[in-house]
Design a protein around this nucleic acid. Sequence first.
RNA 1: GCCGGAGUGGCGGAAUGGCAGACGCGGCGGACUCAAAAUCCGUUGCCCGCAAGGGCGUGUGGGUUCAAGUCCCACCUCCGGCACCA
Length: 898
Amino acid sequence: MPRYQPSRIEPKWQAWWEEHDTFATPRLPTGRKRYVLDMFPYPSGDGLHVGHPEGYTATDIVSRFERMRGTSVMHPMGFDAFGLPAEEHAIRTGTPPRESTERNIATFTRQLKMLGFSYDWNRVLATTDPGYVRWTQWIFLVLFDTWFDPVAQKGRPIAALPIPAAVAARGADAVARYRDEHRLAYQSEAPVNWCPALGTVLANEEVIGGVSERGGHPVVRIPLRQWMLRITAYADRLERELEGLDWPASIKKLQSDWIGRSTGAEVDFFVPPTAGADAAFAAWQTARKQTGFPTQPGPDALRVYTTRPDTLYGVTFMVVAPEHPLVDTLTTPAQRAEIAAYREAAARKSDLDRTDLAREKTGVFTGSHVIHPLSGRPVPVWVADYVLATYGTGAIMAVPAHDDRDFEFAGTFGIDVVTVVEPAAGPAKPDTLFTGDGRAVNSGPYTGLGTREFIARVGGDLAAAGLGRPAVNYKLRDWLFSRQRFWGEPFPILHELDAAGHPTGAIRAVPEAELPVNLPLLTDFKPGDTPDPPLSRAPADWLYVDRDGKRYRRETNTMPQWAGSCWYYLRFLDPGNDGRFIDPAVEQAWMPVDLYIGGAEHAVLHLLYSRFWHKVLYDRGHVSCPEPFGRLVNQGMILGEMEFTGYRSSKGGWVSAEKRQEGDVAAKIPADQVEKQGEHFVLRDAPQIRVESRAYKMSKSRGNVVNPDQVVRDFGADSLRLYEMFMGPLEATKPWSTTGVSGVRGFLDRCWRLVVDERADELTLAPQVCADPPTDAQLREINRCIDKVTRDIEALSFNTAIARMMEFVNFCTPLRPAPVSLAAWPTVEPQWLVDDTVEIPVQIQGKLRGRVVVPAGADAAALEAAAAADPKIAELLAGKRIVKVVAVPGRLVNFVLG
RNA sequence: GCCGGAGUGGCGGAAUGGCAGACGCGGCGGACUCAAAAUCCGUUGCCCGCAAGGGCGUGUGGGUUCAAGUCCCACCUCCGGCACCA
C-alpha cells in the first residue's frame, strides 16, 4: 500500500468504528458536557447535497476536538422525514410515502457514514417513526391542555383556567367551549387557498396572480376549520429572551422583526345612528366616561389601532379591511353593490397578491361617516384591502399628512391632507408627507406639544374618557398548524358525532395510553373534489371510534412538517424511552444544546417554533431550561463552480454583456477563452466583448450540482471534508472549485508521504521518520502550530487552522515529522511560543524603509536605538529633523520627520 | 422601498489600528524522464528600471491617526432576506 488511498483507508476505519461503537455516548455525561447538534436533513430523493457536509463537518471537528480533550460529547443525527415531496411522489407513482421515505433515509445514512462523521448512530431517529410520532402527538396534547395566564405570563394547565360565573351558569357545554377557546391548541375558521382544478389547498407561495403557480388554475379563498397554535401568547417572551442567546445578531433581528412588537393606542370612533347624530354622540361620550373603555367594542363604535395617537387631529378618513364585521352596518344602500363587488374581488386574491402586487391603492367609500372622538367631526369610512383584517383591529384612522400609505390613498381618491405635525426645522409645505417626530399644530388643546409628550398625554386623556387605551400589537400571527395532507402526524383528537353522524362541536383528546395514532393504510393518495384531507377517505375502522357510549370521528387534518423538528433535539438524548418523551435527569444533564449549526433559511420558522414549544414544555415543568439552543451558527451556501457567460444576438454575433437585450442567447464560455481587462472579463479573441463572471446556486436545471458520491470516489471523503472547511469562513457563501479539492488532496498526499515510504510495496515508515530528539526550531514550530490550530478550532475558524497545518507540513517536508496522536489533543508548551529575537519593521513617515533584528523583550528605547543605528535608516535620516518617534515593542518603529 | 452581509492578485481567501496578499488553486521557469504523468525546486499584485532601487495598490470620494483593508461620514456595485403590520 505505497500510496495514499482513501478508498482503502476510509471504509476500513468506518467499519471499525461501527463494529466497536466508537462514538457511542453514555446516557449521562461525566464531567464537562457539550451538546453539538446539526440541523437534521429532510431525506430527499436526490440524496445528500455538497451543502450538507459543510455544517456536518464543522460540528464533527468540534465534536472530535472536544472528545480528545476529555469532554463528554453528544453528537447525534436523524431525519426530518415527513413532508410534501414524498407525498407528491406518492400521488405520481402510487408508492406509499413511507416506502420512498425509508429508501431515501437508507441513502442518506449510507452517504453520511461514507463521510466518516462521528455520530452516535444508536440515537438515530426519524420524525416519521411511530415511536417518535407518539411523543410529537403527546406534546400536541400538552399544548391542547395548556392555556396562557397573562398575569403570570406563563402556560398553565387548562384545569386551572378560571371560569367566569356567567359561563359556569350556562352549564358543562359552555364551560367546555370556554376552555376550548383558551387552549394553546385551538380550532378556528381560517381562509385557505383552495384550487378546485388541482383538488388541493395551496400555500400562499403557490398562488400567483390569483391562479395556481402550477397549471394556472383559478384559486379561491374559502374558510376552513383549522388548528391553530397560540404562539402570539408567547410573543413577548420569545422576543425578550432572544437577548441572552449567543446567536448571530442578524438572526436575532430577523426573529425580532418577524415578531414585530409595536406599541400605540386603541381608539374608538362613534358610529352614529342615521338620525340625531349629535345628540347620540353626546350621550355616547357621557356613557363612556362612566363605563370606561370596553374590552370589545359594541356596534356603536369603530375601533382602530394606531402607533401615532398624536396625529388624531389629522384624521381625514377611516379605512376598514374588506373582511371587517362592521362593513355591512356602515355601507349605505347606494354603495352596497360596489362594496359587495370589491369585497368579492378581495376574497379572490391571496394574501400575497394583496400585499405584494397590488401597488396601486384601491378602495370604495361606504357612504357613511363616523364621529371623531375628540373633535366630534364626521369622518368618511372607506373599505380598502391595504388594511389587513388580521392585524390590530382590522381598521385604521387614516392620517395622510403623516403616513405614506394613507398619503398615497388620499392622493388617489382626492381626500384632504391636514398637517398636524411640523418637523423641528419649521413649518412644512401644505399637502406634503412628513412621518417623523415633531411638534403638534392644529391639534386643539395639544397644539405645541412634542410627539412623545403628546402621545403620553393623549393616552391618559383617552383612557380617562373611556375612548381609548394603550395597546401592544405584534406582526406575529397564531400558527396555522393543520394541513390537508396525508404524510404528516395525525392529530390525537376525536370529534363527537350526533345520532345523525354530524359533528356536535365537542372534541376530546385521545388518551395518552392510546398514542401514537398511526396513519391509516391508504392506497389512493390523489386529491379529491373537496378540500377534505386525504385522511377523510380512510377506512371506517380507522376513521370512526366509540368511547363511553358515544361515536367519534377522528381529526383528519395532519400536522405540518415543522412539528417533528420542534423537539427532535430532546428526543436524541433519550431516544428509546417508552415511558416518557425524555427522562428529566437526562434532560437536565445535557440541555441546552451548546452548539447548533445549520442553514440561515431556518432563521425564523424552525427556530421560532422550536423556542415556542420549548417554552411551553418549560412552563409545564417538562424541561429545565427556558431556551433550547445556546450558540447558533449558520453555515454559508456553497455555490456551483464559477461560470463565464457570453451573449449572442439573434443574428449570431457576440454582444457585450452590458449591452445585451432581451432575446440574446446566453452561452457558457470556457475559462481559457476569457481574460480580465480592467474591471471586467472579456473574450480573449474579441476584447471589446464583455462576459459575465459569476457563480450560481447549484440547481438541477443549471446542471452545476456537485455530487458528494462522485467527489468521494475521485478524491476521498477526507479531501471533501477538508476542502469544504478550507474554502473560506464557515458562514460565508462560496463557490465550489474542483481544482480546489485536488489541492487539499495534494496536501493529504504530502502528509502521507511524510510518514509512509511510497516506494515500498508494503506499508512501511518513510526513511526520514526516526527517533532523534527534536531541535529547538522544530519544537517551536510544532508548538506554534498546535497553539494556532487549537485557538482556530475554538473560534470555528477552520480555514486558517488548515492553512496553519499546511505550513507545518511544508516546514516538515525536508525534515522528520512530529509524532501524531489520535488519543488526546496535544498541549502547548508555552516556552516554545516565544522567540529569542524578533524582526521589527522600521518606517519613515509611515513608509516601510527597512527591518532590524532585536532581542525579543526589547523596549521602545532599545528599538529606536537599534533602528537609528541601521546603516540604511541612518542614511535616510541624515540631515532630517525628527519630530516624533513611535516605537511599539514587538511591532514596529516609525520616524516622523519635520 | 426597507433591513442585513460583502466588495482585497487571474480565482478561493489571510491579516488584536502596526511589514497587505498567509495558505491553497491557477500561471511561468527549472530538475527528474527517451517522453509524459506524478513528484520536487524556484517564481508569481501592478507599473517604471539592465540593475540597485523607486512609485502605485484592499469598490469610489472625503475624514480621524505617527500609522487605516481595519475607525468615522457620504456614495457605488453585488448577494441574501422582508415587503402596505397602521
